[in-house]
């Protein structure tokens, strides 16, 4: 078996995966630090970009990766190969 498994462009995902879509029960929600009530998404806008908040609260299973970001991921040199440990094949 080859030790190096280099990136095949077909392996690069086109979508992010959101575990929350598959969980029957979610963790208790974030709370407002002052009121202690469940946080409304718009309350996060003081500190976070609005588009980021949308990704924080979504329960969609697959979120498309924008073309510009996909391009950035795929243009990185040998970005993320899998490697196989050398074993002596005792199996």
């Amino acid at each position: 078996m080859d030790r190096f498994i280099f990136r095949n462009p077909n392996h690069l995902p086109t979508h992010f995966y959101n575990l929350k879509a598959d969980l029957e029960e979610l963790p208790p929600p974030p709370l407002n630090p002052v009121t202690k009530n469940p946080l409304k998404p718009e309350e996060l806008e003081v500190i976070f970009p609005r588009s980021f908040i949308a990704q924080e609260i979504t329960r969609e299973r697959f979120i498309p990766i924008p073309a510009e970001v996909l391009e950035a991921y795929s243009s990185l040199p040998a970005h993320s190969p899998d490697l196989r440990f050398k074993t002596n094949g005792l199996s």
Binding site: P49, V69, A72, R84
Partner: peptide
């Protein structure tokens, strides 16, 4: 049989670029 996903070959040497690029893009 042991495999590892090596994120250290990213430009800054860790997996952190994956979300950094997306967060900078969204901002």
């Amino acid at each position: 049989k042991i495999f590892y996903k090596y994120e250290g070959v990213s430009p800054t040497g860790s997996h952190k670029t994956n979300t950094a690029l997306m967060q900078a893009y969204l901002a």
